[in-house]
């Protein structure tokens, strides 16, 4: 990626504005959810089933979230993380600041177009395999701000989402249910299938 030499804050502003406008133009249609493989019947080789089982168990039992929480749903996520609704029992108490060490992005909050390039970049920088849980009404479809001039109508415009957890904000139990759904989805992955 080329690093442009920018010399003044005016040029930085224009560059950021161009970037955001281009992202808006590119994100007119939602990205399809990565779950078409769920419908297919996979022929499972008996040798691979145990490898699959171990790998999927390891991946779903230690999902580490990346720090990317734009708005109020973050507080419900923090509540879920804390002692009453414990996320540590799922192996998820670690929230990694660096996306390279994380494999789950829980998008907790309304996303504005101004922040969208940053979130997309953090998602791109996460190491495979990675999953996304869209938490909250604003993450699913833009919520009550869906028709606003500055709000992205749902994270699936810019990144592919695996599990949608509605709510404004979703209760910790709802978020844990969403995380369990994601764990069941990961349990069904297979090394033979394409795309993850």
């Amino acid at each position: 990626m080329e690093i442009e030499e920018v010399y003044s804050s005016r040029q930085l502003d224009e560059k950021e504005g161009r970037q955001i406008n281009e992202l808006i133009d590119r994100s007119q249609q939602p990205i399809p959810d990565p779950d078409r493989w769920l419908e297919e019947e996979l022929e499972r080789n008996i040798l691979l089933t145990s490898v699959d089982a171990i790998l999927n168990w390891a991946r779903r039992s230690s999902l580490w979230t990346v720090v990317a929480f734009p708005a109020c749903c973050a507080f419900e996520f923090i509540t879920t993380e804390a002692s009453r609704f414990d996320l540590s029992r799922f192996g998820m108490e670690i929230i990694r600041a660096s996306p390279r060490q994380a494999d789950l992005m829980i998008t907790a909050g309304t996303l504005t177009w101004k922040m969208a390039p940053q979130i997309k970049r953090i998602y791109d920088q996460m190491a495979e395999p990675k999953w996304v849980i869209a938490m909250g009404a604003c993450a699913v479809s833009g919520g009550i701000f869906a028709s606003s001039y500055s709000v992205v109508p749902g994270y699936n415009r810019i990144i592919p989402v695996d599990v949608y957890v509605p709510g404004c904000p979703p209760r910790p139990e709802a978020l844990i249910y969403g995380i369990r759904m994601l764990q069941e989805k990961i349990a069904r992955q297979s090394l033979i299938a394409e795309d993850k």
């Binding site: 502003d13 504005g17 001039y149």
Partner: peptide, 14 residues
């Protein structure tokens, strides 16, 4: 005097 909450290149004043 330049835009502060919206991005440069946004058209209009919401």
């Amino acid at each position: 005097l330049k835009r502060i909450v919206l991005w440069e290149g946004f058209e209009g004043h919401p």
